[in-house]
Amino acid sequence: MRRAVCPGSYDPPTNGHLDILERASSLFDEVVVAVLINKNKQGLFSVEERMEMLREVSAHLPNVRIDSWHGLLVHYCQQNDIQAIVKGLRAISDFDYELQMAQMNQQLTGVETLFMPTKPPNSFLSSSLVKEVATYGGNVSHLLPEAVHKRLVQRLGQNG
């Protein structure tokens, strides 16, 4: 079975994340969305809430499974018989960092990393940017799955 993992913080999941998950799910038998647990960083949403949102927005993808992890991603891959890491790239700056990480991961365990370019409408999209714009009242509804947008508005205490 060909398995891949799509790691990230997903705080919150965006349309860009969902696009990468949908495309990866067409290439692999199973795609695991691994939500990063970073005990040193306080997210807007808890890991459990992010996993819940991801389950909801990926429900139409039967070969996608949601999980969480902390520590080295390659150890998670080894423990779960995952052969590849799929990463979405928005810009050259993403590639510089991700290439070094991919080479280290391959050296450590042989796990390969596949880079998937984002579609142009999502090339600027990041969870951090969405949260910042939404915090100051900007409309981000077109950047998020509807269920995620509802939760974001509710969390920030806004009307829409």
Score class of each variant (00 low, 15 high):
Arg2Pro: 00
Arg2Thr: 13
Val5Cys: 04
Pro7Gly: 12
Pro7Glu: 07
Pro7Gln: 10
Ser9Tyr: 06
Gly16Cys: 10
Gly16Ile: 02
Leu18Phe: 11
Ile20Cys: 09
Leu21Pro: 09
Leu21Val: 14
Arg23His: 07
Arg23Gln: 12
Ser26His: 08
Ser26Asp: 14
Asp29Arg: 11
Val32Gly: 02
Val32Thr: 13
Val32Ala: 08
Val33Met: 06
Ala34Ile: 01
Ala34Glu: 05
Val35Ser: 04
Leu36Arg: 02
Leu36Glu: 08
Asn38Lys: 10
Asn40Cys: 01
Asn40Gln: 13
Asn40Glu: 15
Lys41Ser: 11
Gln42Arg: 14
Leu44Val: 13
Phe45Ser: 05
Phe45His: 09
Phe45Asn: 09
Ser46Gly: 11
Met53Thr: 06
Leu54Lys: 13
Arg55Asn: 14
Arg55Ser: 14
Glu56His: 11
Ser58Thr: 15
Ser58Val: 04
Ala59Leu: 05
Ala59Pro: 03
Ala59Asp: 03
Pro62Thr: 00
Asn63Ser: 04
Val64Thr: 05
Arg65Val: 00
Arg65Trp: 00
Ile66Pro: 06
Ser68Glu: 14
Ser68Asp: 12
Ser68Val: 02
Trp69Ala: 13
Trp69Ser: 03
Leu73Tyr: 09
His75Asp: 15
His75Gln: 14
Tyr76Lys: 01
Tyr76Val: 02
Gln78Trp: 03
Gln79Leu: 13
Asn80Thr: 00
Asp81Cys: 06
Ala84Ile: 01
Val86Ser: 04
Val86Pro: 10
Gly88Met: 10
Leu89Pro: 09
Ala91Cys: 10
Ala91His: 12
Ile92Asp: 02
Phe95Gly: 11
Asp96Cys: 02
Glu98Gly: 03
Gln100Ala: 11
Met101Gln: 15
Ala102Thr: 08
Gln103Ile: 10
Gln107Glu: 08
Leu108Gln: 05
Thr109Tyr: 03
Gly110Pro: 11
Gly110Ala: 11
Gly110Met: 08
Glu112Gln: 14
Pro117Glu: 09
Pro117His: 07
Thr118Phe: 14
Lys119Ile: 08
Pro120Val: 10
Pro121Tyr: 11
Pro121Cys: 04
Asn122Trp: 15
Ser123Trp: 01
Ser123Thr: 11
Ser123Tyr: 04
Phe124Met: 08
Phe124Ala: 12
Leu125Phe: 05
Ser126Arg: 12
Leu129Cys: 09
Leu129Trp: 05
Lys131Leu: 00
Glu132Lys: 12
Glu132Gln: 13
Val133Gln: 10
Thr135His: 12
Gly137Phe: 04
Val140Pro: 10
Val140Lys: 06
Ser141Asn: 08
Ser141Cys: 07
His142Pro: 02
Leu143Ile: 06
Leu143Asn: 12
Leu144Pro: 10
Pro145Asp: 05
Glu146Lys: 14
His149Met: 05
His149Arg: 07
Arg151Asp: 02
Leu152Tyr: 03
Val153Asp: 03
Gln154Val: 01
Gln154Trp: 12
Arg155Leu: 13
Leu156Thr: 09
Leu156Met: 13
Gly157Phe: 06
Gln158Cys: 04
Gly160Phe: 09
Gly160Gln: 11
Gly160Thr: 01
